[in-house]
């Protein structure tokens, strides 16, 4: 069965014009246009390019919601099995448009999508987890290689051929890990990697560590006597029975608990559900992890103004960085709205 492919390109590659035509809204043509013609010839018998959707780069960037909706509609009308966008090389607006339409089409029409970009295109970081972005050179001088790589990947995907690692297939990693049996065991591979490192030879890790951001420190609290302070913890201290079913490890949620009527955490009212440390001491007295008792004491003494009336807790063990960052952003929004002045965050 011949599979149906739709291509997405910008006004420039459609031959409509350069910057002066970048404002054109989405349109569709029932044929292969521009680079799509070359894709058609590379796909050969495997698939037919049934249409090309075109949109000006500025239009897409400035009318993101409308452009996305209209392009998804136009693409959907061709009833495609696959979308190919670009390639965008190092063109920023075009890269974002290609990445955005690919992730939208894959998300809504449930078909695979492929685009191509240079590694520094901002679209790579934004969209590489959501679509296949083939690595290309930084300009259209690399068009031939880019289209060859995109078409080869397209054929594999359309045929349902199992894909190898992103590195081998030539696209940017999507953050997906697949389990498989390696011919040599982990100990040998680790030692081999170490020897290559010591010899100054290239090696690649099997487990990329996340890169953490840094932020400039916030201004200090000026007037502690009138400051509201919130308690936050990743130490897994929750009301007895864990009412929100926060996971004991690899948490994907956090709890928000009213402590306005509590002066002390005790084994009767709170417990630790953290799966990453011995909970004996925390369960004897949860204040050893989430120090409500002393915070109340200092609040009564007037050391600081007020303890915020809720605590935020989760379990910080095996927790994905993306989840932890989201918890922080959501908690931060709430504390900002409620005029909290500072946070004491305890971790185990």
């Amino acid at each position: 069965m011949t599979r149906r492919v739709v291509c997405y390109i910008n006004q420039f590659f459609a031959g409509m014009g350069g910057e002066e035509q970048a404002h054109v809204p989405p349109s569709a043509r029932p044929e292969a246009v521009g680079p799509a013609m070359q894709i058609q010839s590379l796909l050969g018998e495997e698939a037919v390019v049934v249409g090309t959707v075109i949109c000006g780069d500025s239009y897409y960037g400035e009318h993101l919601e409308e452009a996305r909706a209209e392009c998804v509609r136009l693409i959907g009308e061709f009833k495609p099995d696959l979308l190919v966008a670009g390639p965008a090389f190092n063109a920023g607006r075009y890269g974002v448009a290609c990445g955005d339409i690919c992730s939208a089409v894959t998300g809504t029409l449930r078909i695979p999508s492929i685009t191509g970009m240079y590694k520094e295109n901002p679209g790579v970081e934004l969209y590489s987890p959501k679509t296949f972005i083939v690595k290309t050179s930084d300009s259209a001088r690399g068009m031939k290689d880019a289209l060859g790589a995109i078409s080869a990947l397209a054929v594999k995907i359309l045929k349902g051929t199992p894909l190898g690692a992103a590195e081998d297939e030539g696209y940017f990693p999507r953050g997906i890990r697949k389990n498989f049996f390696h011919e040599t065991n982990g100990a040998k591979r680790a030692v081999d990697m170490l020897l290559r490192k010591l010899a100054g030879e290239p090696f690649s890790t099997e487990y990329e560590m996340p890169v953490f951001r840094r932020i400039p420190p916030a201004e200090p609290v000026k007037d502690l006597k009138n400051a509201t302070i919130a308690l936050v913890s990743s130490g897994g201290i929750v009301p007895r029975g864990n009412p929100d079913h926060i996971r004991v490890s690899s948490a994907e949620s956090y709890g928000v608990y009213d402590i306005s009527r509590l002066d002390d955490l005790t084994p009767e009212n709170f417990e630790s559900i953290h799966g990453g440390y011995d909970r004996v001491w925390a369960n004897e007295d949860p204040d050893r992890v989430l120090p409500l008792d002393i915070m109340r004491e200092m609040e009564r003494e007037g050391v600081f103004g007020k303890l915020y009336d809720h605590v935020f807790t989760t379990t910080g063990t095996g927790t994905a960085v993306a989840h932890a960052e989201r918890f922080g952003q959501e908690i931060g929004e709430r504390l900002k709205k409620d005029g909290v002045d500072a946070v004491i965050l305890t971790s185990t």
């Binding site: 953490f212 951001r213 840094r214 932020i215 420190p217 916030a218 201004e219 200090p220 609290v221 936050v232 990743s234 989760t314 910080g316 932890a324 960052e325 989201r326 918890f327 922080g328 952003q329 908690i331 931060g332 929004e333 504390l335 900002k336 909290v340 002045d341 500072a342 946070v343 004491i344 965050l345 305890t346 971790s347 185990t348």
Partner: peptide, 18 residues
């Protein structure tokens, strides 16, 4: 989490851990 609270709320966060 500590960093994102500080970044989002614009208030100092002190982390106590071992």
């Amino acid at each position: 989490m500590a960093r994102e609270i500080e970044n989002t709320a614009g208030i100092p966060v002190v982390q106590i851990a071992t």
